[in-house]
């Protein structure tokens, strides 16, 4: 326990009130203001001809919304936009409705072929390029919240940036790390990985009780975990990491972190 000094003690020992983060709010508001403008461009609206005997249109983008119209073989439909895997289309006589992306396989485009509809299945999971996720867990007895963004160099190697907020009883910390993930079996539904990384951790003691100050240390970590493919760009993730805080004193400090969360990938 002698080694558990710096961060651990700080997480359970005292300081001063922290600043709030209005910047995030402003960004969200700016985004909100820009949203209607974004809807104006990107007007790619391809036309396809129904080749199946008929296709059904739903009133909304989901299987729970009723079918209200059928488009016959040989009729043209214009694809207006997409929400998740549903397409909003305009059929002859101005009828607008929604159909699942896979229904496009029963149509022909200008080349006379059915449009290629990607299967968002295991192959996309194994070959994912970008991954964004959020996790929560335990960091040496304190609660941790983290967000990560990853870019896959190959199906087996992913670079990842991660930011964490650690909330202890007496002190909070912010941690930013860069990591490399090795994924030996990317095609498995439960795909294990190993990770190593390095970064910095800044500890801010809580209010009231005196004597401590903000402190920044370098940190290195190694860990392992697994992704569980859930389908359609979504995965669950759980992992364990062992952090070593490189303090300026004789002993380095070791901290275990467990966390679980989810990611979306593209």
């Amino acid at each position: 326990m002698r080694t558990r000094t710096t961060v651990m003690n700080a997480l359970h020992a005292p300081g001063e009130p922290r600043a709030r983060h209005p910047a995030a709010l402003l960004i969200l508001l700016a985004w909100f203001a820009a949203a209607p403008a974004l809807a104006w461009f990107d007007k790619y609206q391809p036309v396809v001809v129904v080749s199946a005997p008929y296709i059904d249109l739903h009133t909304g983008p989901g299987r729970g919304y009723p079918v209200f119209h059928s488009v016959e073989e040989g009729e043209e439909i214009v694809v207006l936009k997409r929400r998740t895997r549903w397409l909003k289309v305009r059929a002859p006589r101005g009828v607008e409705g929604w159909m699942h992306e896979s229904v496009l396989r029963g149509t022909r485009d200008a080349t006379g072929n059915a449009p290629v509809v990607a299967e968002l299945g295991m192959a996309e999971f194994a070959g994912r390029r970008w991954e964004f996720g959020i996790m929560a867990g335990d960091f040496g007895g304190a609660a941790s919240l983290s967000a990560h963004a990853g870019f896959a160099l190959t199906p087996n190697i992913m670079l990842q940036a991660e930011g964490s907020q650690i909330l202890g009883d007496f002190s909070d910390a912010t941690m930013a790390t860069g990591n490399v993930l090795m994924i030996p079996f990317p095609k498995w539904r439960v795909s294990p990985f190993f990770r190593i990384g390095t970064g910095i951790i800044q500890v801010r003691p809580h209010s009231t009780i005196v004597r401590s100050e903000d402190r920044t240390d370098e940190i290195v970590n190694a860990g392992l975990g697994a992704n569980l493919f859930l389908g359609d760009r979504f995965l669950l993730r759980a992992e364990y990491q062992r952090h070593t805080v490189l303090t300026s004193r004789d002993d380095n400090e070791e901290i275990d972190q467990w966390k679980a969360g989810f990611s979306v990938y593209f």
């Binding site: 949203a35 790619y44 397409l87 992306e101 485009d109 290629v116």
Partner: peptide
């Protein structure tokens, strides 16, 4: 002849984000 192009499903405008107050 008009250029015959295949439909690129990925290029169709998607509206998957929702933002509000």
């Amino acid at each position: 002849e008009p250029e015959r192009r295949a439909v690129a499903v990925d290029a169709i405008d998607s509206e998957n984000f929702e933002l509000g107050v």
